[in-house]
Simulated scan of single mutants.
Amino acid sequence: MDDAPLFDPSLDGWVQRNDEPGFIEMAGPIWERRGDDGLILGFVVRPMHCNRRGVLHGGMLMTFADQALGLSAWEANAGSPQATIQLDTHFIAAVDVGEFVQAETRITRKTRSLIFMSGSIHVSGRVVATAQGIWKTLQKERNEN
């Protein structure tokens, strides 16, 4: 990509997430907004997100899918602790630097201890990946005082 400016999500109604420190900081910033069906996440592809070919790295796309589906599952689970126990990602198309990637997610099934999620990841209306996963509800930590 040449020196064209990157898309600025804040000018289109997106709000930057303030996630806790850790691995996801390296993948961000991650943006969010509410859609008719719930939380939508997005990020602008930067050179640091790319592979040797100069397109979005599959690992970054999987990290984003895990974050998007996991946050939606967490919200559906009233903020209870949880862990990803399975994540399947299918890559469909390449994504270039400067493009804005969005994830829309949905719950496909929920039990007492598991949440089954699916989602589509797209850029400007074209699907670039799909993902399905399972999140396990964990017991809340007990206060040992």
Rank of each mutant, 00 (worst) to 15 (best):
M117I: 11
W74K: 04
P81F: 03
A129N: 05
H122M: 11
V127E: 08
E141Y: 15
R126T: 15
A4Y: 14
F7Q: 02
A103N: 14
L61A: 02
R34C: 02
D88N: 11
G70K: 07
D8F: 04
R106L: 09
T89C: 04
R34P: 06
M1D: 04
L11T: 06
G42V: 01
A131K: 04
L138W: 10
T105D: 03
A73G: 05
E25P: 10
L6E: 00
P81W: 08
N145F: 13
T108Q: 10
R33Q: 11
D3W: 11
H57W: 00
I40F: 09
S118P: 04
V44G: 03
G13W: 05
V55E: 01
T105A: 11
M26A: 15
S72E: 07
D96P: 05
T84K: 05
D8P: 01
A78N: 10
L6F: 14
Q102T: 05
T108D: 10
A27R: 07
D12I: 03
D8V: 13
V55A: 00
S124T: 12
A78K: 11
E104M: 12
I40W: 13
F23K: 12
A68P: 06
A65C: 03
R52V: 08
N143W: 09
R112K: 10
M62W: 06
I134V: 14
G54V: 08
Q132A: 15
N18H: 12
S72P: 14
N143Y: 15
W135A: 00
G35W: 11
